[in-house]
Design a protein around this nucleic acid. Structure first.
Lengths: 353, 353
DNA sequence: TTGTACGCGTTATCAA
DNA sequence: TTGATAACGCGTACAA
């Protein structure tokens, strides 16, 4: 077992000083060609690689991005990660992941754990519990310590940081308008409680689309699902809730669901009642995941371009990180944060006419 | 903006030495209660936290696990990650992720990047390209450098490391036996090329099940899908290939597919021919993901307990990491590696009778 | 009870 | 052309 070799070992072996070795390996022409070659040959033989940790300590940057997301078994989030990783890697960064599991405490702990030197900056999407409790001190503290954050999808307006969001409002408006122009008269929405920002915005888009088309919104056609139901483990409860909703509203002829799961579950319920999709009821979901592609009928859906979100978020963060280096030389400038909006796209399949 | 505070700063501020501060914070009773309180109060005020990087350098361990997987937008892998993260976090470890994207080169680069001090050990699943090229030098080199590896799912027998695998053979046998006992006479298998170990094993299980039930295997009922088709981007090609296969074998009355995607795609094809599932054809898949749960009819499937695999892999790795500390004191012992087999489970839904 | 010195692995600066 | 030294942040053995 040949352990990792260090500069010191090479130096001892070749009977030169550590700094000579260091310079020789970095092709400094301070060093004579003779020793340079000797050192490089030896280093190659023993497969020398500089120790990242030591470099991090020295350079005061880790070239690592911390990602905090609520859940990883989730098509949307894993696609975002893929996007982040793609850009990060191509620019020499690694990616370290913390899962909040939708819990405020885990979010805080994870962030603290990573913020103590392990990473250069965060890319994150806020947990539901945090959104509910409205306690954002950990974000502000991190930012105040000089560690940049980029938030995506589930963001908080008031926090001073870069953001990448989907045009939730416009996207859901497009979807509902599609249903309207397809002849739906009684369009229901299955959404989340309002504290989930994306749910709130998508609901708002739904309402605006109705209004602009002179359709009066009917409160009973709005179903706001509770968090607890919003997981794979409570599939049946979710189905029951939607079914109850259905029984109360037999006249529904169009459904807009703010995520894939709600949409396919709604389709399941619809089938129970022997109604045909899209003939009797048309359905549109949000997020273009595996379910939409493989459901039967294929689900018309608002695509969020998750991977693109990740890529953009990574670009924003890395740009800021590399900018900071210069900034320190020029002194403080006015911080200027951007909010990038990723356009949605309506992908038409067979659940609409 | 108050930057992270260090021992040195506290020391300067309080006009004591760095080591006094260090000791005071670690509740050493070498230090007088007076200074101890003073230091701790100050540290709390400025929210002092030791720098992880410095600790890593000092202790020569990072308390970080490196994960290398072929793909993250994949129910199975993300569930494994969740399992790893769960255990890792509970034992004070972080998790850093590298994606190979099924590419040999990216796998090697990612591993080299992380192996240079960033992590204490690897948990990984081998990329298809690596399996195809049969070039495993990077694994052996990593292990030789004293960095432990735990492989899961896609593993190589010959490599000296801990492994966590699914009882692929037994699992697929169970599935095929189910089809047989349900009355299927012409059971097809849709599988991968043989160099993917899990595909090979599952094919083998299929063959054994047939043999033990005195059914002679029919080569034309075995479809081995090429890698290139095995992605979301080539859904149509995959569908075509399966359809061709179908046309040639009109007598099929049972299908065993070695993953979810193949299974639901096969079901899609079956429907085209107006055959009823499970009346005319019964289908069983492998991996219990979202698709199985939500497909129509619900897909009977062999569950791999992905999260459990992740948990087990993390336990194995961490145990070895913490063991190594002791081992260094006692000198070299004979290495002893385990292969943990996670039992599969047949989850019956509506695609079988 | 407190402080000094050293080492983890690296690089940069300055001296020889 | 080479080497000694300091610094990144921390913990600890040893000295005062």
């Amino acid at each position: 077992m040949k352990r990792k070799v260090t500069l010191k070992q090479i130096a001892r072996e070749l009977d030169v000083s550590i700094s000579t070795v260091s310079k020789a390996l970095r092709h400094s022409k301070e060093i004579s060609e003779d020793t340079r070659e000797k050192v490089q040959a030896f280093a190659k033989l023993y497969n020398y690689r500089p120790n990242n940790i030591a470099l991090s300590l020295k350079n005061r940057k880790t070239k690592t991005i911390g990602i905090i997301i609520p859940e990883i078994v989730h098509h949307f989030f894993s696609k975002v990660i893929r996007g982040i990783e793609l850009i990060a890697n191509s620019r020499g960064y690694n990616v370290i992941i913390g899962l909040s599991n939708e819990s405020f405490t885990k979010e805080v702990i994870n962030m603290e754990m990573l913020a103590n030197g392990s990473i250069d900056g965060f890319i994150l999407s806020i947990s539901k519990e945090t959104l509910l409790q409205q306690d954002f001190h950990h974000f502000n503290e991190t930012i105040n310590q000089g560690m940049p954050i980029v938030m995506f999808d589930r963001v908080i307006e008031e926090i001073n940081c870069d953001k990448v969001i989907v045009d939730d409002l416009k996207g859901s408006k497009k979807a509902v308008e599609k249903l309207i122009s397809n002849g739906c008269k009684n369009i229901a929405i299955i959404t989340t409680k309002d504290y989930v920002s994306v749910g709130r915005l998508r609901t708002q888009g739904y309402l605006e689309a109705l209004q602009e088309n002179k359709i009066s919104a009917n409160k009973s056609l709005i179903l706001k699902i509770d968090v607890e139901l919003d997981s794979e483990d409570h599939l049946e409860d979710l189905e029951n809730e939607i079914e109850q909703f259905f029984k109360k509203n037999k006249n529904i002829d169009g459904i807009f669901a703010v995520n894939e799961l709600y949409a396919v579950t709604a389709m399941k319920v619809v089938r129970k009642y022997d109604l045909k999709i899209p003939d009797n009821i048309q359905v549109i979901g949000f997020t273009d995941g595996v379910l939409s592609k493989h459901s039967r009928p294929g689900l018309t859906t608002v695509s969020q371009h998750a991977q693109e979100m990740g890529e953009k978020a990574a670009e924003l963060l890395i740009e800021r990180l590399e900018l900071e280096v210069e900034k320190e030389e020029y002194g403080e400038e006015e911080e200027h944060y951007q909010t990038v909006v990723i356009e949605t796209e309506l992908i038409e399949r067979d659940s609409t006419k």
